[in-house]
């Protein structure tokens, strides 16, 4: 099972955290500003591999932090 490292509280089981989504990226090839906004709001990279995302430690310090996670096997990178 997945454990995350909270910089404040230490290593904790994933149940203590809320997933806040990956850091949004918009592909460079989308140039129209309106289309970039739509992409930013709705579209996901849905990476199969290392994803950089925000997590909220709701059962602990109640602060956000950034995590690198491998979505292939759902394991923590940093």
């Amino acid at each position: 099972m997945l454990w995350l490292n909270c910089p404040q509280c230490g290593s904790r089981p994933v149940e203590e955290f809320a997933f806040g989504g990956e850091l949004p990226t918009v592909p460079d090839r989308i140039t129209d500003p309106h289309e970039r906004d739509i992409d930013y709001v709705w579209m996901f990279d849905n990476l199969e591999g290392v994803s950089t995302e925000r997590w909220f430690h709701q059962a602990g310090c109640r602060r956000w932090h950034t995590v690198a996670r491998d979505t292939i096997d759902d394991t923590l990178i940093t």
Binding site: F19, F44, T71, D74
Partner: peptide
């Protein structure tokens, strides 16, 4: 479904 996106088919005890 599990809250975080994942391609893993590993089932969990939790």
């Amino acid at each position: 479904f599990e809250p975080q996106p994942s391609y893993s088919m590993q089932s969990t005890f939790n």
